[in-house]
Design a protein around this nucleic acid. Structure first.
Lengths: 251, 251
DNA sequence: TCATTAATGTGTTATTATGACGCAATGTAC
DNA sequence: GTACATTGCGTCATAATAACACATTAATGA
């Protein structure tokens, strides 16, 4: 893996990487897919390098796909991070020794790196977190309980969430985060979780249905306490149309 | 210049550049600062490389500052462009010969480049376009009359304008694009130019004043045909506050 | 069985924001 | 002076939003 890349580092863009913030939604919680390598004591965002013969968007899809197995999902570039010392001393001599990387080749890793941030929205239920190898742990972690991350990954994660919050006002969200059939309260919880604030049930219903991207199904959710809520699905055609044109016109 | 960078290319991030879309406003037109080198037949965005010991934001400021002489202006990263072939065959052998760059060193330039896009809003009246050398032309060009650009610079420019249009709905714009004292009709023209659509005079006044970022001055614009419009200035404190918190809450 | 409870579904009202205008005021040009 | 273009201020109908009341539903347990 990493060693293969180092050994063939001329096939990759030097000093440039990709990090993905992969969001999922489960148990009314916003989850983030994080990775921990055996030896490390901190978690990190799934990332990767950019083959010289691949578009950066393609490289991002590869990163996402290798960890989640899904493709065709919502994936968007949101920012590029390039503080001078952002990866200072990340790969020290000891780590290189441990990874059995020659010092000469290790220099490729030790140089200053700029990273391009992407965020993805995926259907939690369809994902089986997929470790790249047996030395790696991949896990969904509640975004409110994210532990200390390596480098500036915390900053990257925060910026991704900020972007998602802003984009919530510009486009519909949910198609990639919820199962095919869902209830309005579930969709509302998703919005509330992302925005980290309570919304009025009745006003939410009116606003979300007025957008015209929902199809009310002739079916109720089963096995629930209390009144069974109606099931809905997204009208993909209208959803994509709104995605393209945006929600609010503003001026 | 370029030759100095190539000769000391180990001091710069390889395969990574910065391009700036610098917007100004003059004669009720949105202008873009473009560059043409003597030998080239196409215009390009002002750009530069990233010293290994500089944050990318700092490098962007350097690019902007070197062409316009101003600093402390609005400068924002908006996207990173990394199609595989975006700079394919941009520097060919002939060009390298012309620039008196040895073939070995020229390889640094010929590799695949990813570029980070920044856009800036500057006060047209305060800027003296500043060529980096005598082989270079720097000019303000009406955004509606931008000629063919090199590489994917057209795409970069379009994306910058798209971003600006979206951000117009999220934050106040004008502080960096207009002189200190301005009239409401001038501000409206700015909005209309950016959005490329007509706005109702009276509704615009109401909406823009309701934001609470304008100070009505006890002064009218002089030397104008017809009724003299009142002068306004931005209340910087409130302006910055709204900039930070955003305009629309949406949900 | 049936009241309790905690959800969902639907509707109402007051307030605010928006879009589409009317009209008077101002200052230049003739 | 009058014509004219532009600014400044206001009105009105409509739409969007926030706050809230009440009926409905289904599981629970006395």
């Amino acid at each position: 893996m990493l060693k293969d890349i180092i050994d063939n580092n001329e096939n990759y863009q030097p000093g440039l990487s990709i990090d993905c913030v992969i969001f999922g939604f489960h148990d009314n919680q916003l989850k983030v897919l994080l990775i921990k390598v055996e030896r490390a004591n901190k978690w990190s965002l799934p990332g990767g390098f950019i083959p010289v013969d691949q578009d950066i968007d393609t490289a991002a899809i590869t990163v996402l796909n290798s960890r989640t197995g899904v493709d065709g999902v919502f994936l968007r570039q949101f920012a590029t991070f390039g503080k001078v010392d952002r990866n200072k001393q990340h790969f020290d001599k000891k780590t290189l020794e441990y990874l059995k990387i020659e010092e000469a080749k290790g220099k490729w890793l030790m140089r200053r790196f700029v990273t391009i941030g992407y965020y993805a929205l995926v259907d939690f239920s369809k994902i089986l977190p997929n470790p790249a190898n047996r030395h790696e742990i991949v896990e969904w972690i509640d975004h409110k309980e994210v532990p200390e991350l390596i480098l500036d990954h915390r900053e990257i994660l925060d910026k991704a969430l900020d972007t998602l919050r802003i984009e919530l006002n510009l486009m519909p969200i949910g198609y990639n985060l919820l199962p095919e059939k869902f209830t309005i309260p579930e969709l509302q919880k998703l919005y509330e979780t992302i925005l980290d604030k309570k919304l009025d049930r009745r006003n939410f219903l009116r606003k979300i249905t007025n957008i015209g991207i929902l199809t009310k199904l002739d079916e109720k959710k089963s096995n629930v306490a209390h009144k069974a809520p109606n099931l809905y699905s997204f009208d993909k055609e209208k959803y994509d149309e709104v995605l393209k044109n945006g929600l609010n016109q503003g001026w």
